[in-house]
Amino acid sequence: MTDTADKADNENRRDFLQLTAAGMGAVGAVAAAAPLVNSLNPAADTLALSTIEVDISGIPVGESRTVFWQGKPVFIRHRTEEEIKEAQDVDVSALSDKQTDEERVQKPEWLIAVGICTHLGCVPNGSKSTEPRGEYGGWLCPCHGSHYDTSGRIRKGPAPKNLPVPKYEFISDTVVKIG
Protein backbone atom coordinates (compact mmCIF):
# COMPACT_ATOMS: atom_id res chain seq x y z
CA MET A 1 0.00 0.00 0.00
CA THR A 2 2.60 2.51 1.05
CA ASP A 3 4.74 1.17 -1.73
CA THR A 4 2.22 2.13 -4.39
CA ALA A 5 1.67 5.52 -2.79
CA ASP A 6 5.40 6.12 -2.75
CA LYS A 7 5.65 5.11 -6.35
CA ALA A 8 2.80 7.39 -7.35
CA ASP A 9 4.38 10.18 -5.36
CA ASN A 10 7.68 9.56 -7.08
CA GLU A 11 6.07 9.63 -10.48
CA ASN A 12 4.29 12.86 -9.69
CA ARG A 13 7.54 14.40 -8.57
CA ARG A 14 9.27 13.20 -11.69
CA ASP A 15 6.48 14.59 -13.88
CA PHE A 16 6.75 17.88 -12.11
CA LEU A 17 10.51 17.98 -12.47
CA GLN A 18 10.37 17.08 -16.14
CA LEU A 19 7.70 19.67 -16.85
CA THR A 20 9.69 22.32 -15.03
CA ALA A 21 12.82 21.40 -16.96
CA ALA A 22 10.96 21.53 -20.27
CA GLY A 23 9.38 24.84 -19.29
CA MET A 24 12.72 26.35 -18.33
CA GLY A 25 14.20 25.13 -21.58
CA ALA A 26 11.42 26.83 -23.51
CA VAL A 27 11.81 30.07 -21.53
CA GLY A 28 15.55 30.00 -22.15
CA ALA A 29 15.09 29.46 -25.87
CA VAL A 30 12.58 32.31 -26.17
CA ALA A 31 14.80 34.61 -24.08
CA ALA A 32 17.75 33.83 -26.34
CA ALA A 33 15.69 34.41 -29.50
CA ALA A 34 14.24 37.73 -28.32
CA PRO A 35 17.42 39.84 -28.76
CA LEU A 36 17.95 38.32 -32.19
CA VAL A 37 14.48 39.27 -33.35
CA ASN A 38 14.75 42.65 -31.66
CA SER A 39 17.97 43.37 -33.56
CA LEU A 40 15.80 43.55 -36.67
CA ASN A 41 13.89 46.55 -35.29
CA PRO A 42 15.01 50.07 -36.28
CA ALA A 43 18.52 50.74 -34.94
CA ALA A 44 19.50 53.77 -32.84
CA ASP A 45 20.93 55.74 -35.76
CA THR A 46 17.76 55.15 -37.75
CA LEU A 47 15.67 56.32 -34.81
CA ALA A 48 17.93 59.37 -34.33
CA LEU A 49 16.72 60.78 -37.64
CA SER A 50 13.21 60.76 -36.31
CA THR A 51 12.81 64.57 -36.09
CA ILE A 52 13.65 67.29 -38.60
CA GLU A 53 13.17 71.06 -38.74
CA VAL A 54 12.02 72.59 -42.00
CA ASP A 55 12.03 76.22 -43.11
CA ILE A 56 8.75 76.66 -44.92
CA SER A 57 9.02 80.34 -45.81
CA GLY A 58 10.03 79.64 -49.42
CA ILE A 59 7.02 77.55 -50.43
CA PRO A 60 4.72 79.58 -52.68
CA VAL A 61 0.94 79.42 -52.25
CA GLY A 62 -0.53 76.48 -54.13
CA GLU A 63 2.74 74.54 -54.16
CA SER A 64 4.23 71.96 -51.84
CA ARG A 65 7.63 70.87 -50.80
CA THR A 66 8.53 67.24 -50.20
CA VAL A 67 10.94 66.66 -47.34
CA PHE A 68 12.49 63.43 -46.21
CA TRP A 69 11.64 62.24 -42.75
CA GLN A 70 12.39 58.78 -41.39
CA GLY A 71 13.07 57.63 -44.92
CA LYS A 72 9.60 58.74 -45.98
CA PRO A 73 8.53 61.69 -48.08
CA VAL A 74 6.45 64.27 -46.21
CA PHE A 75 4.32 66.73 -48.16
CA ILE A 76 4.20 70.29 -46.84
CA ARG A 77 1.54 72.06 -48.85
CA HIS A 78 0.85 75.78 -48.81
CA ARG A 79 -2.84 75.69 -49.55
CA THR A 80 -4.76 78.36 -51.42
CA GLU A 81 -7.91 79.95 -49.95
CA GLU A 82 -9.94 77.92 -52.41
CA GLU A 83 -8.29 74.66 -51.40
CA ILE A 84 -8.84 75.36 -47.71
CA LYS A 85 -12.49 76.07 -48.33
CA GLU A 86 -12.87 72.91 -50.39
CA ALA A 87 -11.26 70.86 -47.63
CA GLN A 88 -13.46 72.36 -44.93
CA ASP A 89 -16.75 72.10 -46.82
CA VAL A 90 -16.66 68.34 -47.23
CA ASP A 91 -19.46 66.32 -45.65
CA VAL A 92 -17.38 64.23 -43.25
CA SER A 93 -19.98 61.47 -42.85
CA ALA A 94 -19.62 60.64 -46.53
CA LEU A 95 -15.88 59.93 -46.23
CA SER A 96 -14.46 56.46 -45.88
CA ASP A 97 -11.92 57.62 -43.29
CA LYS A 98 -13.90 60.23 -41.33
CA GLN A 99 -11.76 63.20 -40.34
CA THR A 100 -12.53 66.90 -40.49
CA ASP A 101 -10.00 69.26 -41.99
CA GLU A 102 -9.60 70.89 -38.55
CA GLU A 103 -8.39 67.61 -37.09
CA ARG A 104 -5.73 67.34 -39.77
CA VAL A 105 -4.14 70.81 -39.75
CA GLN A 106 -2.79 73.17 -37.12
CA LYS A 107 -2.82 76.25 -39.37
CA PRO A 108 -5.35 76.10 -42.21
CA GLU A 109 -2.87 77.33 -44.84
CA TRP A 110 -0.40 74.52 -44.11
CA LEU A 111 -1.19 70.87 -44.69
CA ILE A 112 1.51 68.47 -43.55
CA ALA A 113 1.04 64.79 -44.38
CA VAL A 114 3.17 61.72 -45.02
CA GLY A 115 3.35 61.27 -48.79
CA ILE A 116 2.86 57.55 -48.88
CA CYS A 117 -0.30 56.10 -50.34
CA THR A 118 -2.07 54.09 -47.66
CA HIS A 119 -2.88 51.40 -50.17
CA LEU A 120 0.49 49.89 -51.02
CA GLY A 121 3.03 52.56 -50.26
CA CYS A 122 3.58 54.46 -53.49
CA VAL A 123 4.26 58.22 -53.54
CA PRO A 124 1.19 60.06 -54.86
CA ASN A 125 1.63 62.76 -57.52
CA GLY A 126 0.31 66.29 -57.13
CA SER A 127 2.88 68.11 -55.01
CA LYS A 128 3.84 70.27 -57.97
CA SER A 129 0.96 72.16 -59.52
CA THR A 130 2.03 70.74 -62.88
CA GLU A 131 1.44 67.16 -61.79
CA PRO A 132 -1.95 65.45 -62.03
CA ARG A 133 -3.84 66.02 -58.77
CA GLY A 134 -6.80 63.72 -59.25
CA GLU A 135 -10.50 64.45 -59.12
CA TYR A 136 -10.39 66.13 -55.72
CA GLY A 137 -7.50 68.52 -56.34
CA GLY A 138 -5.13 66.97 -53.86
CA TRP A 139 -3.00 64.04 -54.91
CA LEU A 140 -3.36 61.13 -57.30
CA CYS A 141 -1.52 57.90 -56.69
CA PRO A 142 -0.03 56.65 -59.99
CA CYS A 143 0.08 53.02 -58.85
CA HIS A 144 -3.53 52.07 -58.37
CA GLY A 145 -5.42 55.31 -58.81
CA SER A 146 -6.24 56.51 -55.31
CA HIS A 147 -7.52 60.11 -55.22
CA TYR A 148 -6.79 62.33 -52.23
CA ASP A 149 -8.36 65.73 -51.55
CA THR A 150 -6.71 69.00 -50.50
CA SER A 151 -6.72 67.77 -46.92
CA GLY A 152 -4.93 64.55 -47.90
CA ARG A 153 -8.08 62.51 -47.29
CA ILE A 154 -8.85 59.44 -49.35
CA ARG A 155 -11.83 60.11 -51.61
CA LYS A 156 -11.71 57.49 -54.33
CA GLY A 157 -9.74 54.37 -55.15
CA PRO A 158 -8.40 51.36 -53.28
CA ALA A 159 -6.55 53.09 -50.43
CA PRO A 160 -8.31 52.55 -47.08
CA LYS A 161 -7.07 55.57 -45.08
CA ASN A 162 -6.20 59.24 -45.30
CA LEU A 163 -2.57 60.27 -45.75
CA PRO A 164 -1.29 60.14 -42.17
CA VAL A 165 -0.46 63.43 -40.44
CA PRO A 166 2.88 63.17 -38.66
CA LYS A 167 3.48 64.74 -35.27
CA TYR A 168 4.69 68.30 -35.84
CA GLU A 169 4.80 71.74 -34.27
CA PHE A 170 5.44 75.26 -35.50
CA ILE A 171 8.60 76.47 -33.79
CA SER A 172 8.13 79.89 -35.37
CA ASP A 173 6.04 81.25 -38.23
CA THR A 174 8.48 79.92 -40.77
CA VAL A 175 9.98 76.82 -39.16
CA VAL A 176 8.15 73.60 -38.50
CA LYS A 177 9.52 70.65 -36.57
CA ILE A 178 8.36 67.26 -37.78
CA GLY A 179 8.51 64.27 -35.45
Binding site: L40, N41, P42, T46, Q70, G71, K72
Partner: peptide, 17 residues
Amino acid sequence: VTLLWGGFSVDNPTLTR
Protein backbone atom coordinates in the same frame (compact mmCIF):
# COMPACT_ATOMS: atom_id res chain seq x y z
CA VAL B 1 6.23 45.85 -41.33
CA THR B 2 8.60 48.03 -39.28
CA LEU B 3 10.30 44.87 -38.04
CA LEU B 4 10.67 43.57 -41.61
CA TRP B 5 12.12 46.86 -42.81
CA GLY B 6 14.31 47.58 -39.81
CA GLY B 7 13.31 51.22 -40.28
CA PHE B 8 10.47 53.33 -41.56
CA SER B 9 10.71 52.40 -45.23
CA VAL B 10 12.43 49.83 -47.42
CA ASP B 11 16.01 51.00 -46.97
CA ASN B 12 19.53 49.89 -46.23
CA PRO B 13 18.69 47.62 -43.26
CA THR B 14 16.06 45.91 -45.42
CA LEU B 15 18.48 45.31 -48.29
CA THR B 16 21.15 43.88 -45.99
CA ARG B 17 18.83 41.42 -44.31
